[in-house]
Nucleic acid binder design. Structure first.
Lengths: 338, 338
DNA sequence: GTGAAAGCGCTAACAT
DNA sequence: ATGTTAGCGCTTTCAC
């Protein structure tokens, strides 16, 4: 009298649930998707059977049949620098409840990887794509433009978006920071950044920064680049190197908060008078800074808001113009003279 | 004489490439997958046509037909604490070149979200799943066990894996740290952790830690939990609270390096003699510590190695036993008396 | 080396 | 409220 247990090595299909419940495949499908009118009785029978069997629907088949995929591709350069996790939070939060699911791809700032990641993602026919930056290979742009889905380029608005863009002007952010520094009376200003040839946003910030310096008749008195390793440690080392080489520097502008924090710890350890003898500023507004002995000047990159807005566009909750510009706030902290 | 440009609003299919190149769909498919014997001439024709049209294959249809999906589901609780990004790096590195692609889902330590993430992922019929932790809902375990694909539970080995497990013993890690602390002569020891009811690994570390204390006739003299906010700042605040409440504490054991780093900065700012008057230790071995003024004692969680090993199992490059145990090394740094 | 036919597991559209 | 039919865009299998 053994019930014929279904072969556990066979992945279950709608048909199995249909047979187990004595209801047609179509009605089973309706129940499982909460679609159309199904009587409470059949509904119960079906759910019961599906649960008992441990049925997991096959979205591949569903997607092919319905031409609908509830996935949103998200392509970002890195996960390790505190900025993209927060963007992801904004995206996930907003997608929650829309039935859409983010799928993340990381490119490590490599254009080739970006291109293949985009290709790979598009081949799954997602409902939309969110991509960091406005600089992409011609092939990438072409693929995205042809895909027939909403494309949102995030973080940056200094350039021409393929479809939509949500971000800040990094050029302007650099300019603004330079103006604040100059207004505070600093004159011998150095730049310290990570060597990332493909970090176009850092480059734009520096461009804007130097532009504002030039307008004030100033220029950078030194600059230092590093790559790899612990950002905090690198910040220390770079700062030591620059201050040894050019002792009369009175301001250190960092391309991001982590190396800025390293620099700040170094200056404090050296007993330098911050911000009177020397000022410092970073970029991003990472919450890490809240725990430091002194608060580094920085500029909020609007990461959470960017994630939210981008997701809203994909979810059709926003009917924006081509570009959505957000405006970062300068947080002077304790490292710029007042 | 206008060439009939294909409707750009229509997503391209193999058929379009077939017509454009005058080669059968089947042969086009072969070329695009580098399968079987195709003459160099046809090959060129096909690739040319595909490129010209901007064809992107439809993996949904491909997967349905071939019953093969090159995706590996990775389910982790968080992206923001430095530990999982490194695990991801290990996974990506190892999957590189195998044709497999990781797809990440984040659960925020919520069992319900974990369950739905697993369900969602399994419904895409991935080639394997990598999941943080050994504690899952009964439904999650059942789904995974039934899926018929390799399942690797990572980070922890204190428990019963569904299929494979790769990780360290957190219980033992806690024990080891306690033993080192006791051996260094500390006796009034407090614990500081983030309030995460579902962080089972932190809990196991604490269990092991207290077990070793008990064996030495000791017990925690104080404990403090916090949740949310900047970990560095929380570390500061918790440390201040504990030291005010129990001034004669001589050692602070933190559940992770970030709050430990905050505590260390606090102690140094207070002018406390570290490690003689008071010692500190964290957990994880994050590279961030390299940039601090003094190096926090910690224990490497073998994150990169865990990611690599897990991916090797999925990729079939390793034929391991059920559990793969890795052994973290204790890094005494500058905050434990020698 | 190339092509034709069948079908993967599901859902849209149309019955009833 | 439920069932039937005809694909979705590929790949497998087999034929030539």
């Amino acid at each position: 009298m053994t019930k014929p247990t279904p072969d556990p090595r066979h992945t279950l299909t709608l048909r199995d649930v249909s047979e187990a419940s004595g209801v047609s495949e179509m009605t089973v499908s309706r129940v499982l998707r909460n679609r159309g009118d199904v009587s409470a009785a059949t509904r119960e029978k079906v759910l019961e059977a599906a649960r008992a069997l441990g049925y997991v629907p096959n979205k591949i088949a569903g997607a092919l049949a319905s031409q609908r995929v509830n996935l949103v591709g998200v392509v970002i350069p890195s996960l390790s620098n505190m900025v993209f996790p927060e963007v992801m939070t904004g995206i996930s939060e907003t997608l929650e409840g829309t039935g859409l699911q983010p799928v993340v791809g990381v490119t490590n700032y490599l254009p080739d990887r970006e291109e293949s990641t985009i290709y790979e993602m598009l081949s799954w026919r997602p409902s939309g794509m969110i991509i960091a930056g406005l600089e992409h290979s011609a092939a990438s742009r072409a693929m995205l433009a042809r895909a027939g889905i909403p494309i949102v380029e995030i973080m940056d608005i200094d350039g021409d978006p393929i479809d939509h863009a949500v971000g800040i002007s990094h050029r302007r952010a650099g300019r603004q920071m330079a103006e604040a520094i100059i207004a505070a009376g600093y004159r011998r200003i150095a730049f310290l950044g990570t060597q990332m040839p493909n970090d176009f946003r850092a480059k734009k910030r520096l461009d804007g920064f130097e532009e504002a310096l030039a307008r004030a008749g100033l220029s950078l008195v030194d600059r230092e680049y590093y790559s790899g390793g612990s950002a905090l440690l690198k910040g220390r080392e770079m700062t030591a190197a620059v201050l040894n080489r050019t002792p009369d520097i009175d301001f250190l502008y960092y391309s991001n908060d982590m190396i800025g924090a390293g620099g700040l710890l170094y200056c404090l350890a050296q007993g330098l008078d911050v911000p009177d003898r020397i000022g410092l500023a970073g970029f991003n507004g990472v919450e890490l800074l809240d725990g430091l002995p002194r608060k580094l000047a920085t500029m909020d990159a609007c990461r959470l808001e960017i994630g939210r807005k981008a997701a809203e566009i994909i979810a059709g909750k926003a009917m924006p113009g081509e570009k959505v510009e957000l405006f970062p706030t300068l947080q002077p902290g304790d490292t710029i003279r007042r």
